[in-house]
């Protein structure tokens, strides 16, 4: 009996190895905030490229279940979630390339590892971008040109705090709350001068913490019918929003209590 030939170049990998690599790709996408249907599609596409069929994938924001051929299955628990559109785009591209032209598994793993840590811009640059984003959005939120600098300062400070806290073991909701506390400080510092609009400055700073991807993914999951994911992402977005609002009101409360000026 001859074994069936395969179109894959190089030696045929053990199926579980390939399945593991596919799961790794899906896991990285899910942890970066991709929609569930995209994760499932990407994994099925990759599995087909590596001749793992039939395969069935169930993804929810906190877990990933994969049933491979001959009863093998993998279950992964997801504890850490973050926002990184670059990783989503990169693995999406990788899966398209692999589907068109299957590369050896080792090479795929290497590229996947690179894609997982893909960051287009350096960490210190994101602080600068956050500053620019906060300054600009304060202009859309009723701010005048003088509010640009304090808002930019607030945005940069917020991003710096969030990045610093993400390196510690502090839970992400608490770190959002603390970042929002920091975001209010520049607005409070300039509130006594009547030429500034402290409201616009404050909103500019905390907009950096907006859970925009969570919200968008929740809606898109809802349309495709991934209801568990849609509901849990909406809840997560609400929790983040609540933490940010709570963090921002705390210093403001003390400030108003001490009789500070606030328009």
């Amino acid at each position: 009996m001859t074994k069936s030939t395969t179109r894959l170049p190089g030696p045929q990998p053990a199926p579980l190895d390939a399945l593991q690599a596919v799961v790794d790709a899906g896991l990285a996408m899910l942890m970066s905030g991709a929609e569930v249907s995209r994760v499932e599609d990407t994994m099925v596409r990759l599995a087909r490229a590596y001749r793992i069929e039939p395969v069935d994938v169930v993804a929810i924001p906190t877990a990933l279940f994969v049933a491979g051929p001959d009863g093998r299955s993998l279950v992964k628990r997801i504890r850490h979630r973050s926002v990184n559109l670059a990783v989503v785009a990169e693995i999406n591209q990788l899966s398209r390339n692999v589907a068109k032209n299957p590369i050896p598994l080792d090479e795929f793993r290497e590229q996947l590892e690179r894609a997982k840590h893909h960051a287009v811009y350096a960490p210190w640059l994101t602080i600068l971008f956050a500053a620019g984003a906060a300054g600009l959005i304060s202009q859309l939120m009723g701010g005048h040109l003088v509010d640009f600098l304090p808002a930019a300062f607030s945005g940069g400070l917020t991003q710096l705090t969030r990045r610093a806290l993400s390196l510690t073991r502090i839970p992400s909701n608490l770190s959002d709350l603390l970042s929002a506390v920091v975001a209010t400080l520049p607005a409070l510092a300039v509130a006594r001068f009547s030429i500034f609009q402290p409201g616009s400055i404050l909103v500019g700073g905390i907009m950096v913490l907006t859970p925009g991807l969570l919200f968008t993914s929740a809606i898109r999951d809802g349309i495709t019918g991934d209801l568990v994911s849609a509901a849990s992402r909406l809840l997560e977005a609400l929790l983040v929003g609540g933490a940010v609002a709570a963090g921002a009101s705390l210093p403001l409360y003390f400030y108003l209590h001490m009789g500070g000026r606030w328009p």
Partner: peptide, 15 residues
Amino acid sequence: FAALTTIAFGLLYQV
């Protein structure tokens, strides 16, 4: 300003 804001947030989200 809306365009610039979009670009700034895009940069922040690593687009």
